[in-house]
Simulated scan of single mutants.
Amino acid sequence: MNQRMTTGEALAWFDTLGTVSVEEMLGRWRGEGIDTGHYLDGMLEAARWHGKVFESADEGFPLVHYGPFGGRYCINPALLPIRLCAALPAKSVLFPVLMPVLRPILSTRKPKSRLRMTEYRGKLSATMIYDAKPINDVFRRIDADSVLGLMDHRGDAEPFFFKLIREA
């Protein structure tokens, strides 16, 4: 995790940022966690999350992970019990071991999300909509090559935050 702030500070920052179009989100993105005390903080990093890929508005890969011996692979989010994973004790120890073992079951070559423009907190911006989870990731522009992501997961009291940096 590269940044640490409260949820209130992250929301205030999010609200100051400009919007981003669907077209601007196309491409490959490297992800970084933002520690706000959310129950998911550290889980993506422990699972060797690399970032996201958007090949088109209808072909998104929300969970791109590093392989155990290099390379990258995509995970099907429909197969991940998010709350159970987050509740595991010593997730930072278990995930690096479990992910390579579960890779054949969890991986996919098919897109599992899409991009649409949605209104959130008063602004219309690109949003990644998961195909099989009640999750929307709303994006706001930090600069020309990075965005702040806010994961709006139905049932969560507070959003989860992350940063995406465009890859060349």
Rank of each mutant, 00 (worst) to 15 (best):
M5D: 10
M5R: 12
T6N: 01
T6S: 10
T7Q: 01
G8I: 09
G8V: 13
A10W: 01
A10Q: 06
A10Y: 02
L11S: 06
F14M: 01
L17M: 04
V20C: 03
S21V: 03
V22K: 01
E23Y: 00
E24F: 04
L26M: 07
G27N: 04
R28G: 05
R28A: 09
G31N: 08
G31Y: 05
G31T: 13
G31C: 08
G31M: 09
E32L: 09
G33I: 03
T36V: 04
G37C: 02
G37Y: 00
G37H: 00
Y39K: 08
Y39T: 11
L40I: 07
L40A: 05
L40V: 08
D41T: 04
G42T: 05
M43W: 10
M43N: 11
E45Y: 05
A46P: 06
A47F: 00
A47S: 10
R48L: 09
R48I: 10
W49T: 01
W49Q: 01
G51T: 01
V53K: 09
V53P: 02
F54P: 08
F54D: 07
A57D: 10
E59V: 07
E59G: 08
E59F: 01
G60D: 04
G60F: 01
F61P: 03
L63M: 11
L63A: 07
H65V: 11
Y66N: 00
G67Q: 11
G67F: 14
P68I: 15
P68C: 09
F69I: 09
G71F: 11
R72W: 14
R72Y: 15
Y73S: 12
P77E: 08
P77A: 05
P77Q: 09
A78G: 11
A78Y: 06
A78T: 12
L79N: 10
L79E: 10
L80F: 11
L80P: 05
L80R: 07
R83M: 15
C85S: 12
A86Q: 11
A87M: 14
A87S: 15
A87D: 12
L88F: 15
L88G: 13
L88S: 12
P89Y: 14
A90T: 14
A90S: 14
V93Y: 15
V93D: 14
P96R: 12
V97W: 12
V97Y: 13
V97C: 13
V97T: 15
L98S: 07
L98K: 07
P100N: 08
P100G: 11
V101H: 11
L102G: 05
R103C: 10
P104E: 09
I105P: 03
L106T: 05
L106V: 07
R109S: 14
P111S: 08
P111D: 04
K112W: 00
S113I: 03
S113T: 04
R114M: 03
R116M: 04
R116F: 00
Y120I: 12
Y120C: 09
R121M: 03
R121H: 02
R121Q: 02
A126F: 04
D131N: 10
K133W: 00
P134G: 10
I135N: 01
N136G: 10
D137H: 06
I142Y: 02
D143L: 07
D143A: 12
D143H: 08
S146I: 15
S146T: 15
V147S: 09
V147N: 07
G149Q: 05
M151S: 10
D152L: 10
H153L: 06
H153A: 07
D156M: 04
A157L: 06
A157M: 04
A157C: 06
A157Y: 07
F160P: 01
F162H: 10
K163G: 15
E167T: 14
